[in-house]
Amino acid sequence: MFAYIVRRAAYAIPILIGVNLLTFYLFFVVNSPDDMARLHLGVKRVTPEAIEKWKAERGYNKPLLYNEAVSGSERFTKTIFFEKSVKLFAFDFGYSDDGRDISHDIAQRMVPSLAIAIPSLLVGLLINISFAMLLAFFRGTYVDVSGVILCVALMSVSAMFYIIGGQFLLGKLLRLMPISGYDGGVDAIKFLVLPVIIGVVSGIGSSTRLYRSFFLEEAGKDFIRTARAKGLKESRVLFRHLLANAMIPIVTGVVVILPLLFMGSLLLESFFAVPGLGSYTIDAINRQDFAIVRAMVFLGSVLYIIGLILVDVAYTVVDPRVRLS
């Protein structure tokens, strides 16, 4: 298993290089360092010297991918791409275009992101699995049919409506909780309740339906028939035999997104003005801050790959049949 993880981690390196190349290309193909400097310096102070100075301060005063001015391997290393990328691999994200320490920002903003994401995930899982088991238990009856239709209806509503509707109903009409905002410490809880509720509700439709299909898939298998032929109680058949097997795809499905929880939720954070990584990303996009975008892309890719490795590990834990090699 160790050898397997080492191999998968090594496989991540070419992927991350590819990711970097792609973002780099997308950004600089239209946005040369000169343009960036002009954008940031504003109209008034644009002089060639000022641009050069801005570029030099931020390490943009080199060729993009290939440096003809020097020789040997430096042709590749003395470039913006190389210098900006190598640091990423050491998780040194550098400074944003307005001079803030990105690593510090990320570390700070991770907390509110997780404060929304983790409760949403746990509560959501509990609710969705219960509902799915309920539907699977009543399979073929009207409870099941209408439940499935309700799920489809719920998943047909855009997340934006859930947010706007939730803010309007719970925040504005009923005045149960603040509409948006965030505070440090224990006070954060009252700001987090609404986003978590909305996060859970918006996921119920699709997840319940998916989990139900997992349950039904297992319910048709021979070993369930064996369990019934043993004369076991229906509750034992459901919880011990059915759930144990249906949990395999559920757990692995959750594990794969687990690392990505760190990235935060774009919509929730921005609607509720929570200073997490999701809103950080949106702000960066709107301000066209390449340093932050690149850092977030890199972070996202690393987390995605970690997720893939975690899934494989999770399989060996929940499914005795799987061994890694």
């Binding site: 992927i15 973002t23 239209v30 946005n31 774009l266 996009i285 890719s301």
Partner: peptide, 22 residues
Amino acid sequence: TTLNSIPGILLIAAAILMLQVY
């Protein structure tokens, strides 16, 4: 895998910004 590992929204944002500049 490479394409998938980039957060989709960021890739789309980068591409659309590129188009806007163009």
